[in-house]
């Protein structure tokens, strides 16, 4: 199973939905595509991992890299709908200490002030 993803902009929030498996092979392309969307008008990012079934430390690297870019825009990054397995990896990495999480996409968008 490979990785597919979609980007959507809601007000000043870039919404990224990932489906499938995120490993080193998929990480480079995801990073390049993601950076294309971090353009004018985008300040915050919401990442929806509801359908991400597998991730290794390459995924942590991608999120950390985008987190730094969002911080440069003075924005926030919220990761939502993380499943049990992927959550363990985030816990282990300590990334939760800097990146905010929410249970659902709606909650994440609301947190960043997007009118639903």
């Amino acid at each position: 199973m490979s990785l597919t993803y979609e980007f959507e902009q809601k007000e000043n929030v870039l919404l990224v939905r990932l489906t499938g498996e995120l490993d080193h092979h998929e990480a480079e392309q995801l990073k390049n595509d993601w950076q294309l969307y971090l353009r004018e008008g985008v300040k915050h990012v919401v990442v929806n991992l509801e359908n991400l079934h597998f991730m290794d430390s390459s995924g942590l690297g991608v999120f950390l890299g985008r987190y730094k870019e969002v911080k440069e825009l003075n924005g926030e990054m919220v990761i939502c709908a993380i499943n049990y397995d992927v959550n363990r990896l985030f816990e282990l990495s300590g990334l939760f200490k800097i990146i905010d999480t929410e249970d659902s996409e709606d909650a994440a968008l609301a947190r960043l002030g997007v009118a639903l």
């Binding site: 290794d56 430390s57 390459s58 942590l60 690297g61 890299g65 282990l92 990495s93």
Partner: peptide, 14 residues
């Protein structure tokens, strides 16, 4: 520069 998280061995150990 490759955006590696540096967590690979830590994950293996855990």
């Amino acid at each position: 520069e490759l955006e590696r998280s540096g967590m690979g061995f830590t994950i293996m150990e855990n």
